[in-house]
Design a protein around this nucleic acid. Sequence first.
DNA 1: TTGACAAATTGAAATTCGTGAATATAATAT
DNA 2: ATATTATATTCACGAATTTCAATTTGTCAA
Lengths: 102, 102
Amino acid sequence: MELSDKKTAEMFKAFCDENRIKILKLLQGGEKCACVLLDDLHITQPTLSHHMKILCDAEIVVGRKEGKWMYYSISPEGADKAISVLCALTDVHGQGDCCCKE
Amino acid sequence: MELSDKKTAEMFKAFCDENRIKILKLLQGGEKCACVLLDDLHITQPTLSHHMKILCDAEIVVGRKEGKWMYYSISPEGADKAISVLCALTDVHGQGDCCCKE
DNA sequence: TTGACAAATTGAAATTCGTGAATATAATAT
DNA sequence: ATATTATATTCACGAATTTCAATTTGTCAA
C-alpha cells in the first residue's frame, strides 16, 4: 500500500520535534504511563498529551487505557512501516542496497 | 556517533514536507538539475532553493555545481544514517528485531 | 563589457507548530 | 453525591515554517 506524499510527510512529523524524540527514547525501555513520561520531561501535561496524540496519529506509538491511566508504547508495526517508507524513499532506483528492500 | 535529540529532530525535518517528499521521489531516478526539478514541481524557484537547502543541510541530498547549473542527488551515506537513526530510535530494547541493528 | 540565464538570498505575508493556562472529561475513592 | 486524580481538549500566543516577489550573485556567450 502506497502512502500519499502528504501522508508520508505527516508520518515523519512524528520524528521532527525534540520532545517527541525524548518520548520515543523513554518508550524504548518498554510501555510507560503518561504520568511517568511527564515526570521525565520538562513540559506541562497538556503539552505531553499533544505530543502523544501526534505520535499515536502517526501510528508510531499505541496507547492503552487502564483505569485512570494511559500506557503508551512503541508500535513495532508502525515503526517498521516508517522504516520501510524511509528506505523506499531514499533508495536510488537500480542500486538496490537498501536493507529494507522487498 | 550519537546525535543529540535536537539534531535528530532536525534531520527528520527533511522528510516532513510534502514537496520535499516529491523532490526525493524525483531524485530516486538519479541526479537531476534544479531546473528539471522545478519543471516537475508546482513551486517557484526560490521555494525550490529553500527546500534543497534543507535537504542538503540534513545531508540527505548532495549538490554539485556545474557551470550555471546545480545537480542534486540523494546521498546514500546520508540516507543510511537517517535509516539507522530511525531504526535505533524505534527499536524497543531487548527485542532486537531491527534490520539495522549492529 | 553587456546581456542572458540559473540559482541563491532577502523580505514579507500566511500558515503551521509548540506551548501552557484554563477547563472538560473520565475513573476512582471516600 | 462529592472529592480527587489522570488525561484530554480548548484557547491564545509566540516562534518557526512555507511561500512568493524582488533582488542579488555567479556563470557563460556575444
